[in-house]
Amino acid sequence: MFEARLVQGSLLKKILEATKDLLTEATFDCSSTGMSLQAMDSSHVSLVSLMLRSDGFDAYRCDRNLSMGINLTSMTKIIKCSSNDDVVTIKADDNNPDTVTFMFESPNQEKVSDFEMKLMDLDTEHLGIPETDYSVVVKMPAQEFQRVCRDMSQIGESVTICCTKDGIRFSASGDLGTGNIKIAQSANVDKEEEAVVIEMQEAVTLTFALRYLNFFTRATSLSGQVSLSMSPEVPLVVEYKIADMGYMRYYLAPKIED
């Protein structure tokens, strides 16, 4: 028996929005520690890693480990049938392993819906991601990062991110010219969410495809802050924390000079 109840049901809508450009199907792995998902996009350039810890749910029961192969387009259709203030419960019965049920309850309990969705047999590859001490970790407002990625993609297909102790610089070039956006580390801010904080061991310069970074910024509604972790010649990690529950992380392989 698997049952996970989430009072903040709209969180699932935000999570699906944050994966929709990269994934069409994925396996949700459920265990006593929580629900997780790891999946690469079809070109194997980026990876989505989601963690929702069991203690972040309002009720959680997982008697045995369970892998649910889910068509995310179908799940999105079903989750759209919930209202933003609905309580969502995800249920899977050991006696009926080919389906998962989503139950939506209105806050006053007057409307209760349930939708049973067919599961898929997915042959998923899991990547072993080594623990890494990154050379640079930048924390910045998620909306600011979204804006930078959008603006840079007006100029070119790639962005070069250069991070020093003074700040982080985003540069793009294309047929129309070049663009640079430099964001300095915050001197002091009242609100933690508005801060730009740079933890640096060594300066790093890396180049990434803006197409993917813009896909990642679909997660902006999940968190006020985003963190970018970089080391020379390894994939970038873009992380949005999901309050009290876990995270949505994206890994992106860099572009290298020919």
């Binding site: 590859e125 080594p130 392989a253 290298i256």
Partner: peptide, 14 residues
């Protein structure tokens, strides 16, 4: 010019 690398260049399949 830059070439896009893949995640399998960095991470191993479990």
């Amino acid at each position: 010019d830059h070439t896009q690398t893949k995640l399998s260049d960095y991470f191993k399949v479990k």
